[in-house]
Design a protein around this nucleic acid. Structure first.
Lengths: 255, 255
DNA sequence: CCATCTTTGTGCACGCGTTCACAAAGACAT
DNA sequence: ATGTCTTTGTGAACGCGTGCACAAAGATGG
């Protein structure tokens, strides 16, 4: 997982569970691929495989949207694409502002996955005056001063923060004050937002750290003669030979 | 959440729950900040606030690592930084290869969060021959042909895929065959990997879609007197006001 | 040394999400 | 029509994660 979200009570979650919502885009992607191949229908089993999930889970997910399948046959691809798109709100146009046009911001601006799903980059914003006017992905970068005006004029409700950590909260505050109610945060900071504003975060460093944890466990496992579940195959992994005063894998404790 | 991982049985989870592992990097970041300010100790309440979580949850998380706190006082910052780092395996050196040096790959190569946490970019790899030798973030890009050699010579066990979707599975297969056992995937595809290999994915488009869902719900909520689950009806939303105690912050509208 | 105050560590209950397993629904062949 | 076969939709059980609430541990002050 690369994401986390500010805890929304899920109180009046009229219907669709959060976990299901998070998978809908996955199904949508798989369905779109099928659609492009002109496949008319698909079974839960096939679609589940394509999306990388369990088929029972997929069927239950779809059951929250309604009964769109036909027993004995499966699901109509086109119809399902439409239903999921609608449920996710992708039949609308969502203008998005990206704040912080460094390497990452530029990469995001160029990312094709945005436009292809109903998202439109309304503006690129950076605090550096020398960036102003410079085109990135065909869109001229604008200065931070324009932030509020752009948001209000274009009716932007989704903002992407790709600034350094130090600037993130400030940018966030301005976005929210100007009317943005959903934020995708790439800066490695915890954002404080008022209730009613959704924040999702993506932190590359965190993802790697989680991988490192599992990697370490995998490596340590064999060393300790584990008659484990999985024959983890030939591990290359040179001898760790790293620091660690008392370096040891176990979680045990001194003191 | 921007991430998902291939389901690992978690069977003989030597203790630490997956959810806790995912939060450890968060705590570590907050603790590092405290450490830099030379704060000697911190209470679960304070640290939880800084990390954006519940204090009870934080205490329970730490309890999985051992009893590192002192009642009536709190946690020793430096000691905790060390323990968490060790638990996550960050006291080791983790060479990482990044495959696919487009906008995103370049952004990743330049990302400071890697080096600062024990990760070292061992190589940048791209399929485009014209990229070869060109330095990105001070590191010369190498051609895909070198992939296996690099992985084996440097003992790389973590790979980052930032290629187009079409190339991802192929790259993944080669990485795995060469000995990589942990993969961070930015390509919008489901990767098939043998058991024992961890995959985490980050999909920007998916994150935005999840935000759009909530955004749509926020907008439609007051417009309608909460209709049923099944007939959400295509709302072309021309929302009134956003929710909130005494909501201002108009949810505005796209063009 | 005793009382009081702070803060940890955790037992417990609850709710969400996952998975199994199967009845019902429909397609299809005869 | 009737029977068979496929696949959905879902009831129910289970397990994980979360949050409450409190007893125990230790600091601190008298």
């Amino acid at each position: 997982m690369a994401t986390g979200r500010t805890h929304r009570p899920a109180t009046r979650s009229r219907g669709i569970p959060e976990a299901t919502v998070a998978r809908l885009p996955l199904y949508l992607r798989a369905l779109t691929a099928l659609s492009e191949r002109s496949v008319p229908t698909v079974s839960s089993e096939e679609l589940a495989a394509a999306a990388g999930v369990n088929s029972a889970k997929l069927r239950k997910d779809f059951s929250y949207l309604g009964s769109y399948g036909t027993r004995g046959v499966g699901y109509d691809v086109e119809y399902l694409v439409y239903q999921i798109s609608r449920e996710l709100g992708l039949t609308q146009d969502w203008p998005v502002v990206i704040v912080g046009i460094g390497n990452l911001g530029a990469a995001l601006a160029n990312y094709g996955g945005f436009a292809s799903r109903g998202f439109r980059v309304a503006a690129l914003i950076d605090a550096d005056p020398s960036m102003a006017g410079k085109p990135v992905a065909g869109i001229p970068v604008q200065h931070t001063d324009e932030l509020e005006k752009i948001i209000q004029d274009d009716g932007v409700s989704i903002g992407v923060i790709a600034t350094p950590a130090g600037a993130a909260q400030q940018v966030c505050d301005r976005l929210v004050a100007a009317g943005v109610t959903s934020i995708l945060n790439f800066a490695p900071t915890v954002l404080n937002v008022p209730e009613g504003v959704d924040v999702r975060k993506v932190d590359l460093s965190i993802e790697l750290q989680i991988l490192a944890f599992h990697e370490q466990r995998k490596a340590g496992e064999e060393a300790v003669a584990d008659a484990g579940v999985v024959p983890p195959a030939a591990r290359k992994q040179q001898p760790s030979t790293d620091q660690g005063p008392d370096g040891d894998v176990p979680a045990v404790m001194p003191a």
